[in-house]
């Protein structure tokens, strides 16, 4: 009933994705809460030691940490205030550096966005065009080469691919720096690593989509209507091939987020993924919470973008 008052784009895209964002926050919140509750007894003491140095630690400092983490409250109350803090984007201070988590994350987030955008754009430049060309001539030499290359790339986890690129392009040929941040050449290897992994899959998706479209009755009908091959592709091919490629990007973002975590660590790229791994290693709960939440929300935002792109590309979705 109330559907009349809600624009369709809000009902079919924004609201479900908002629900997903809430789900992410809840999941991260509850898991980090369990984490902080399962910390061994002297954890507060150790954290305090990590922060102020062993000589400076006293019971008061440990108690301060305990209070900061809400360790002395009853479980349910603690969970409530824990989630409330998340809702207010109050993640507290890093247990290691003592700086506010939000401040550290803002800085790292920029680096991660830079890397992710570069990787996705690069992959879209490599994958779909090659896939479409292969799909137009199934069984041709490009199709066969692409199949072998993409099968090979898909059998290499992102960090192994990155490792091989370091060995090959940084150590053997010395074309790019293996690690660091700041210049464009620093971006090249990590972005290429992620882009190759993404392109290996999007090329296959594009190839299968193109093949399906080229064999479809509407493609054949376009030809017998009298359109030239170029006209059929432009009018009935492109849009129909683009829809599954963009839709599948949503699935690929899982690979992207997971890849960011590992690839940033490999290339010492100062982003969120790198920070998350560090925080886990050091059991820095507020940092774990902040970084995991931001990565999860980034995943949601990227998927929202895919949904919106699909609506724009595919009029069927907009009408549904």
């Amino acid at each position: 009933m109330s559907n009349h008052f809600i624009p369709p784009v809000v009902r079919t895209v924004i609201l479900p994705r908002l629900a997903q964002a809430v789900m992410v926050a809840l999941l991260v919140g509850v898991l980090t809460f369990i984490l902080v509750r399962s910390l061994p007894g002297d954890m507060a003491y150790r954290i305090a030691a990590g922060r102020y140095g062993y000589d400076m630690v006293d019971t008061a400092a440990a108690d301060a940490v305990r209070r900061e983490l809400g360790l002395e409250q009853p479980a349910l109350t603690a969970l409530g205030s824990w989630l409330w803090d998340i809702l207010r984007l109050d993640f507290g201070n890093s247990l290691i550096s003592g700086a506010p988590v939000i401040k550290e994350i803002v800085h790292q987030f920029g680096a991660t966005v830079e890397l992710s955008l570069a990787a996705v754009l690069l992959s879209l430049l490599i994958g779909p065009p090659l896939g479409v060309l292969a799909g137009l001539r199934p069984g041709g030499w490009l199709d066969r080469v692409l199949l072998v290359v993409s099968s090979g790339l898909r059998s290499l986890p992102a960090f192994v691919l990155g490792l091989l690129l370091i060995i090959l392009l940084a150590r053997e040929f010395g074309w790019f720096p293996a690690a660091g941040h700041g210049s464009a050449s620093n971006l090249a290897l990590p972005a290429l690593t992620l882009a190759l992994g993404l392109a290996a899959v999007s090329a296959r998706v594009a190839r299968d989509a193109m093949l399906g479209v080229a064999q479809s009755p509407y493609y054949a009908f376009g030809r017998t209507k009298g359109l030239s091959e170029r006209q059929v592709f432009a009018r009935h091919g492109m849009r129909n091939v683009a829809v599954p490629i963009v839709t599948y990007l949503g699935v690929q973002f899982v690979y992207l987020i997971e890849g960011v975590v590992v690839v940033e660590s490999l290339f010492a790229w100062p982003g969120i993924g790198h920070a998350l791994v560090h925080a886990i290693f050091a059991r820095d709960v507020p940092m774990i919470q902040g970084t995991a939440l931001v990565m999860g929300l980034m995943f949601v935002v990227l998927n929202t973008g895919v949904d919106l792109a699909c609506r724009w590309l595919d009029p069927r979705v907009a009408r549904a």
């Binding site: 009908f221 017998t224 009018r235 129909n240 009029p315």
Partner: peptide
């Protein structure tokens, strides 16, 4: 075409 529903471009 044989099945006109499928022969029209769905988009």
């Amino acid at each position: 075409p044989q099945e006109p529903w499928l022969a029209l471009d769905p988009t």
